[in-house]
Design a protein around this nucleic acid. Structure first.
Length: 111
DNA sequence: ACATTGACGGAAA
DNA sequence: ATTTCCGCCAATG
């Protein structure tokens, strides 16, 4: 079953991120019991992007510094930032302001 | 089938 | 404190 795939789990978690909140690749990886597979998380998102029909809020996932590391994958170089600011998340120079305030940790919020 | 790469992150030097 | 290295797992060359 595909729902057991690493990717599927990633997609599921990302979909749980509430409006106006953000999380990190590492946090998701950790939640999936593979704390060191953070690279795979972003990679999974990239794969999901090709596959339209899978609309997941990938813009709510940033690296641990709150930097929009994957903004280039959103077509235009400022699409990701606009999406975030549209949700009340302030971004300055590709970095989220008050990152801690917007941070949503699946390890805590999800059981 | 083997090597390299990637939206990362933590440990080691 | 800063820089470098390694692991994670799947895909691509």
């Amino acid at each position: 079953m595909k729902s057991d795939n690493f990717f599927e789990k990633v997609y599921w978690v990302v979909k749980q991120i509430p409006f106006g909140k953000v999380t990190t690749y590492g946090a998701i990886a950790k939640y999936l019991s593979s704390p060191k597979a953070s690279r795979m998380v972003g990679w999974a998102l990239n794969a999901s992007f090709k596959n339209k029909g899978f609309t997941i809020p990938a813009h709510r996932v940033v690296n641990r510094l709150g930097i929009l590391s994957g903004k280039k994958y959103f077509g235009n170089n400022n699409t990701m930032q606009e999406l975030l600011e549209n949700e009340g998340v302030n971004v300055k120079k590709d970095k989220i302001i008050n990152f801690n305030k917007h941070f949503w940790d699946p390890n805590i919020e999800l059981i």
